[in-house]
Amino acid sequence: MCLDNDSRTQRAFVMARNLLKNPYGEEQLEFWELTENGGSQWRVEDMPGDCGHDFSDAAVTKYFATSFELCLKRQLIDLPEEGFTSEQLDAQPVVAVEDWYCGRQDCGCTYHMTVCLLDDNQEVLEEFKPEPVTLDPESDDCSWKQVSHAFSEYGPGLRYISFEHGGSDKKYWEGWFGVRVTGSSITVQV
């Protein structure tokens, strides 16, 4: 079957959709596995909420808030289940990752992120794990910041993607004074 340019463009657009479910917290913690749920645990807050910072996209109305002990949440994306063929994945398409985080103006926090490309046996092909980021309101405005990464030339065999992020506060205050996260995205650019 031959695809005309419009069909190819439409198919590439469909395949480049955000593969993470509920990236903004509109469905509370649905679709997220809570791998660390310390302190007062994860919760979803309305924008701008206690962080006091508006997001760059007015359509984003919620974010996830962490507590005084480490809070991490994860999604495992099954790429064949999402409609990708072995041929497409073995061609090593670019995998683009994006996340947004911020802190409160009254308490420092840390942000953690780990994204792994996995094979059929969920063995790591490649990992993106930047050093944890510390936000301190005494030296930083703690506004929304973006982290992004593009995987390429990682070898054949990609079948799953693991995305995990979160953090905690730096003063060990009871409640939700830790890092805020929203707008997470993973796209596979076939």
Rank of each mutant, 00 (worst) to 15 (best):
D54S: 11
E98A: 14
N121P: 13
C109D: 07
V60R: 02
H53T: 08
D50R: 15
L125E: 08
K73E: 01
G103P: 00
S67L: 09
K73H: 01
F84A: 08
K73G: 06
Q92K: 09
K62R: 09
F128Q: 06
Q88N: 10
G83E: 05
F64I: 00
D99K: 09
L89Y: 01
D78K: 02
F55Y: 04
L70T: 14
A65C: 07
C107F: 06
L79Q: 00
C71S: 00
C102N: 08
V133W: 07
G49I: 05
V95D: 13
D50G: 15
R43Q: 10
F68V: 06
T66H: 03
T114Y: 13
I77T: 01
P130K: 12
E87G: 12
M47C: 08
D119A: 05
D46K: 15
S67Y: 03
Y111Q: 12
E82P: 09
R43C: 11
Y101Q: 04
S67V: 05
V124T: 07
P48V: 02
L118H: 05
S86V: 15
W100C: 07
M47N: 06
E131H: 10
L89E: 01
E123V: 09
E98T: 11
D99L: 12
C51A: 15
G49L: 04
E123D: 13
L79N: 02
R74Q: 07
G52D: 07
D119C: 04
I77M: 04
T114C: 14
Q105W: 14
S67A: 10
R104C: 13
C71L: 02
L72Q: 01
A59T: 14
R74C: 00
D54M: 04
Q75P: 01
C107N: 08
D119Q: 05
C109T: 05
F55T: 03
D120L: 13
A65D: 02
S67Q: 01
K129Q: 10
K129S: 12
E87A: 11
L72F: 00
Y63M: 00
F64N: 01
G103E: 08
Q105E: 15
R43K: 13
E123T: 12
E131Q: 12
Y111R: 13
A91F: 08
A96F: 14
V95P: 13
Q122W: 05
D46M: 14
K62T: 05
Q88I: 06
Q88F: 08
D90A: 06
A65Q: 04
P93E: 15
T85G: 06
P130L: 10
C116E: 14
E127C: 10
Y111W: 14
L72V: 03
M113W: 08
L125T: 01
R104H: 11
Q75H: 01
E45C: 09
A91S: 12
E87W: 12
E123Y: 11
W100S: 05
Y111L: 12
M47R: 03
M47E: 10
A96S: 15
V60M: 02
D90Y: 03
E126H: 14
F64R: 02
Q105F: 14
D120S: 13
W100H: 07
S86R: 15
G83F: 04
V95F: 05
